[in-house]
Nucleic acid binder design. Sequence first.
DNA 1: CGACTTCTGGCACAGTGTGCCATAACCTCA
DNA 2: TGAGGTTATGGCACACTGTGCCAGAAGTCG
Lengths: 208, 208
Amino acid sequence: MWDHAGVSGSGERGAVADRGGRPALTSARELAEVAQELFLERGFENVSVDDIAAAAGVSRRTFFRYFSTKADVLWVESPAELARFRELLAAAPPEEPYADVLCRAAPRALSHPPERRTWALHRAELLLTVPAVLEKATVRHTEWRRIATEFVAARRGSGPDDLVAIAVGHAVLAATVAAHEYWLAHPDQELPDIMARFLHLLVPAGTG
Amino acid sequence: MWDHAGVSGSGERGAVADRGGRPALTSARELAEVAQELFLERGFENVSVDDIAAAAGVSRRTFFRYFSTKADVLWVESPAELARFRELLAAAPPEEPYADVLCRAAPRALSHPPERRTWALHRAELLLTVPAVLEKATVRHTEWRRIATEFVAARRGSGPDDLVAIAVGHAVLAATVAAHEYWLAHPDQELPDIMARFLHLLVPAGTG
DNA sequence: CGACTTCTGGCACAGTGTGCCATAACCTCA
DNA sequence: TGAGGTTATGGCACACTGTGCCAGAAGTCG
């Protein structure tokens, strides 16, 4: 999940040296591209970091400067998606019920242009089926959840102990994960639609 | 989470040779005990498998015969808890609404005798705060969720594509995780109570 | 005793991730 | 042209994880 185009966040070194210094040989995106291709060909565990580095024309050591983990290479877009989620929530009209805002913002933050569809599907497949990758998901999931929780807490004027805010955060995450799994099983349907359905099922609506 | 006493499942070799052969020097439980102690003292990442093995009086190689991963040592009780969850669901009266059954069974499957309380808290802390451990949680979470989903699907007479069953499964898991996190922040409260509250908030009840 | 079974320990090996350091490639300013 | 600063790279050594392989220990049974 979290598949979408956008500007990479942390690992990005950029292809151009704008502040002087030696220009980078590659970029986080380029590495991610190469890696994902190899993963799809041979399977995640059958591709070593050396393989990725070699295919990208850099050294192993350099790879680990762009990504701190072999699995992290599949989460390049995550910071952009999280940022978009945050922005969509912040831009929502204050009088709109928070449940509605979330049900609208979450699918949109993870939507992608049509030409990226198969790419996103491939990515989702890797993220959801490869255990080693799935495990690394926890950190991103927590962040995604935290955004929703804090949004609800702010709307409700409550603190970090608000059971409802916590519950809604978990519900949003659960719906997101569920939707991606369902999408893999039914690639003919559209991810945002699936997400919306799960969100309406899962987000506690009775409380405003 | 998933903290409770019970008979370990897979890794258990037992302390007695009942089918002939050399008797085991240790047991999965014993290893887990030693390991958890070390983790609490020095922190998960500052304890190597060699350390655990040495403290338990076995070789590194033997440790990996009991547990396939260093983190797995913290999930010894998991099979027992999953089994209990399954049993509680199976034993529920068929006329009771599935949401009620789940809200009753889930907290009970993870409840523990009072003398294990601090032990369970320590365990939960390790499971929820140490990234390397948290990551390994996904597999157990999936199983926990699957049990709930299949139970609901059976009750509703639906298949694996039933959105409601999937959503409820995710809701049960979300409530379980949320409850454990909340418990860590409020150790004075009782875990089953917290779980019940989150379950009532999160499990879609409108659908029977 | 020998035959069979199970658990153990040691070793070698591939792979991951990190710290350290020398060096390459670019900038600006003189 | 060259010096000094900055950034990226590459190589090496190292600790650790997890696995395959195999010899051998320690029981049971006939």
